[in-house]
């Protein structure tokens, strides 16, 4: 087998194993309470009848491993169980919201990735100059700010004061794409500000790292311009780490949507999960948690595989 293919297959198998462990942890996470989950869910309002009802719904009379296997096989068949609060099948609850969340995350990615890479290249090109310093100050502050601060700041400026964009991102099925994009403009801007900094910093670092190699010095001695050296000579060799950090940030984006969705009252998966946690709707929390975690694991896996594929040394083994 081609060594590259073997590496990729190894990664994929590892990914499947990770997903399994993650499902185990998510399930175990709702079992860590030494006492009875049913009583914990009801809190002080626990009447014996209500406790008995929840025990029956969650199947708490059966051993944990049996419930775990049921849940796992259900997941694989696409059966996510039933919500405790409104008795709806969770798959139905989730379907539209998952689409909304993916739409938001994907739009943010389409905006953020080109900006981050372009700024990273510029910072590397004008290293140690004003632009580079300005970018690094911006990076520091955007890393330090909680998502909800950026979100409300943008609402305050662009929705309340300037009337440029809506403060509440309401979308519904059958909405025209342009209207949808307008509705999510502020959440997308927030997410972009959150993820751009890290991607840009890593792009800059990756390029600067390559710039220290002897072949770049050779290109400099040949008299090539700095811009040409960076774009033609340094960038292709810095691609692997850049792709890696981009995909890892996409994974971060999928998680970052949780807070941003709540800020903009966006009907997505994150909002659903937070509501379910507040209502202690354990099956919904497990299902949404698993979806978020699986997306995160799969994107990280993609980052690994892409980094392998982008490495020319692994592509042409000796």
């Amino acid at each position: 087998m081609h060594p590259l293919l073997r590496l990729v297959v190894q990664r994929l198998l590892l990914g499947v194993a990770t997903l399994w462990v993650v499902s185990l942890l998510i399930f175990a996470g709702t079992e860590i309470l030494p006492g009875d989950v049913a009583e914990a869910i009801l809190g002080q309002a626990a009447t014996p009848e209500a406790v008995a009802a929840i025990r029956r719904d969650l199947g708490l009379d059966r051993p944990a491993w049996e419930r775990y296997l049921d849940w796992l096989f259900g997941l694989m068949r696409g059966d996510l169980g039933t919500s405790l609060t409104n008795r709806m099948p969770i798959a139905e609850l989730i379907a539209g919201r998952l689409e909304n969340t993916l739409f938001l995350a994907a739009t943010a990615a389409v905006v953020a990735v080109p900006i981050a890479i372009a700024l990273g290249i510029l910072a590397a090109r004008f290293r140690e100059r004003l632009l580079d310093k300005a970018i690094s100050v911006l990076t520091l502050s955007s890393i330090s700010m909680p998502e909800f601060f950026i979100g409300y700041l943008l609402i305050f400026i662009f929705a309340v004061k300037l009337f440029w964009a809506p403060s509440i991102a309401s979308v519904y099925p059958g909405m025209a794409l342009a209207d949808k994009l307008y509705a999510v403009s502020l959440p997308v801007a927030t997410l972009t500000l959150v993820v751009v900094a890290h991607m840009m910093r890593m792009t800059r670092a990756a390029i600067i790292n390559v710039m220290a190699s002897p072949y770049i010095e050779m290109a400099e001695l040949k008299g090539l311009t700095r811009t040409r050296i960076i774009l033609k000579h340094a960038l292709p060799n810095a691609l692997a780490p850049i792709i890696n950090v981009v995909v890892i940030n996409l994974a971060y984006l999928v998680v970052g949507v949780v807070v941003v969705e709540v800020v903009f009252v966006y009907p997505g998966l994150g909002q659903l999960m937070v509501d379910a946690v507040a209502k202690r709707d354990v099956p919904v929390v497990q299902a949404t948690g698993m979806l978020f975690a699986a997306t995160y694991v799969l994107l990280n896996l993609a980052a690994d595989v892409l980094a392998i594929l982008a490495n020319p040394r692994l592509r042409h083994p000796r």
């Binding site: 942890l25 709702t30 948690g289």
Partner: peptide
Amino acid sequence: DALMAIPTLIFALVVLAVLP
């Protein structure tokens, strides 16, 4: 490794769904 495979916020939400 296993614990870090799950985003921190998501795992915290899962656990907080059952903890007081």
